[in-house]
């Protein structure tokens, strides 16, 4: 038995070719969903058939902002909320690049909210992966713009009294051409959705609902990653093509997941005069 156990121990992982191994194990808490989102993203990159030399990953600040530091591609860790403007500049300077923004809800929707809606309005040809864990994880679990009403956080000890952003509705209303939402439990569907988003021309958004057991879960009766995933398993409903207006997440309510928007629209670069491209 000991000999068998010995043989099951390995040194490297199949995904290690795209990871900066000297930085592993990563800093995310046990049970955090960011590692799952990153795992799916690396799988999607490998399966999408993209030239990985022409892929650039941009992250902002926060727990999800660490992703750029772990991916062994051209990756950039930018200032808070400015991942999308940085990616826009990158794409316009070198339109051959596939630019991916991988960041959290606090970075993209709160501090970078204006950049998010305007990049979607212009239909910039970038892929945005927004990991939503319902609070500001890195700074201590404060209330964020995606915290569901009545949820408890460090700065809302009597329950949140604000209405949250509905990210797919915000993106679809601003003009995104691809909008999908999955939880970190739907690993295969999430990976397939990321492949579609990477291959889509225009502003593609994949929202990933992710557990934050240390800060959000602990104050909302889900103190471990497994319990938070169990909540997703019980409450998530797959509804492709659902109206983004109806997919708001309520406290302890159902999570509608699926692909909500997939349309074709000319991108910002397509609309530029030929000699400016």
């Amino acid at each position: 038995m000991t000999q068998l156990a010995q043989r099951e121990i390995a040194e490297t992982h199949p995904r290690d070719v795209l990871l900066r191994q000297d930085r592993l194990p990563h800093i995310w808490c046990p049970g955090c969903g960011l590692g799952i989102a990153l795992n799916c993203f690396l799988g999607a990159l490998m399966k999408s058939g993209l030239d990985l030399k022409k892929v650039a990953v941009v992250s902002g600040i926060g727990c999800a902002g660490r992703v750029a530091g772990y991916i062994n591609l051209d990756s950039f860790h930018t200032t808070h909320g400015r991942a999308i403007p940085f990616a826009t500049g990158l794409k316009l300077a070198n339109p051959e690049l596939k630019v991916v923004v991988f960041s959290g809800d606090g970075d993209l929707i709160a501090i970078g909210g204006n950049h998010f809606i305007h990049a979607a309005r212009r239909n910039m040809d970038i892929t945005v992966i927004c990991v939503n864990n319902f609070n500001y994880g890195m700074t201590g679990g404060q209330l964020g713009p995606t915290t569901p009403t009545t949820a408890f956080t460090t700065t809302s000890p009597y329950g949140n009294r604000e209405h949250p952003f509905n990210i797919p509705y915000l993106a679809a209303g601003s003009g995104a051409v691809y909008v999908a939402r999955w939880t970190t439990l739907h690993v295969r569907r999430l990976e397939r959705s990321m492949i579609e988003a990477l291959q889509k021309k225009g502003f593609a958004l994949v929202e990933v609902i992710s557990p934050c057991p240390t800060l959000y879960g602990r104050r909302n009766k889900m103190p471990t990653g497994v319990e938070e995933m169990e909540y997703y398993r019980r409450k998530s409903v797959i509804r492709h093509g659902a109206d983004p207006r109806d997919v708001e997440i309520r406290y302890e309510g159902e999570i509608v997941v699926g692909k909500f928007v997939d349309v074709e629209k000319p991108t910002f670069i397509d609309l530029l005069p030929n000699d400016n491209r």
């Binding site: 099951e8 121990i9 490297t12 992982h13 194990p25 808490c29 049970g31 471990t224 990653g225 497994v226």
Partner: peptide, 19 residues
């Protein structure tokens, strides 16, 4: 299948066991 582990990276979240 055969499952391999990298013990130094594990943080004991038990997701693999549960699912």
């Amino acid at each position: 299948g055969k499952v391999f582990f990298i013990p130094a990276r594990c943080k004991g979240c038990e997701l693999c066991i549960t699912y």
